[in-house]
Computed example of a mutant assay.
Amino acid sequence: MTATLLNHRAEGPTSAPPLLLGPSLGTSYALWDRIAPELSITHRVVRWDLPGHGGSAADLIGPGATVADLADLVLALADSLGIERFAYAGVSLGGAVGLQLAVHHPKRLSSLAVICSSAHFNGAKPWEERAARVRSEGLDWLVESADARWFTPGFTVPRLVQDQRDADPEAYAACCDALAAFDLRERLAEIAAPTLLVAGRDDQATPPAHLREIADAVPGAALVELPRAAHLAPAQCPEAVLTALRAHLDGGAKRGMEVRREVLGDAHVDRAQARQTAFTARYQDFISRYAWGEIWTDPTLSRRERSMITLTALVAHGHYDELAMHVRAARRNGLTPDEIGAVLLQTAVYCGVPAANSAFAAAQRVLAEDGEA
Rank of each mutant, 00 (worst) to 15 (best):
H53K: 03
H43S: 06
S24M: 07
G54W: 04
W296S: 09
G26K: 11
G82N: 06
S358D: 12
H319Y: 11
R212L: 02
L142K: 03
A355R: 14
C175A: 09
R275Q: 15
K125G: 14
D321K: 14
P208I: 01
T4K: 04
A189L: 01
Y350H: 07
A87P: 10
T312A: 05
D202E: 12
R331F: 10
W292P: 10
H319S: 14
G82E: 03
A356W: 04
L142C: 07
A173T: 12
T66I: 00
I340A: 05
H8F: 07
T312I: 00
I61D: 00
V241D: 06
V198E: 00
F151S: 01
A180Y: 02
G371C: 06
L139N: 10
L196F: 10
P37I: 03
V366G: 02
S80A: 01
H319V: 15
A173F: 08
I191D: 00
A253I: 13
C351G: 12
A189N: 05
K107F: 13
L73Q: 14
A272E: 09
L223R: 00
A281N: 08
L196D: 02
V263I: 15
R9P: 09
V157G: 05
Y29D: 12
L109A: 09
A171N: 04
A324Q: 11
V114T: 00
Q100S: 14
S111L: 02
R44D: 01
A167L: 08
V259F: 12
R328H: 08
A235I: 09
A174S: 11
Q164M: 11
H326K: 08
L197G: 10
S56W: 03
P234M: 08
P13K: 04
G94D: 00
L264R: 14
A244V: 09
M308P: 01
R261M: 07
R108G: 10
Q284S: 12
V91R: 06
F155W: 11
L25N: 06
W48G: 12
T297M: 09
I61A: 01
W150S: 12
L25Q: 09
H248A: 14
G256P: 08
P126Q: 04
A363S: 12
A189Q: 02
G98L: 01
A16R: 10
W141A: 08
L75D: 07
G54P: 04
A272N: 07
P207W: 02
T156S: 13
T4S: 11
L31N: 04
E305A: 11
H210E: 06
T310K: 09
R9A: 13
L335D: 15
D147Q: 14
N357M: 03
P126R: 05
A313W: 03
L264A: 11
G371D: 06
A205V: 14
A192D: 02
A178T: 03
L245N: 07
A362T: 02
L323Q: 06
V263R: 12
Y29H: 13
Q236F: 06
D203N: 05
V241S: 04
E170N: 07
P207C: 00
T206A: 03
E128M: 10
A71H: 01
T280H: 04
H8L: 03
L335V: 08
P194D: 01
L109F: 13
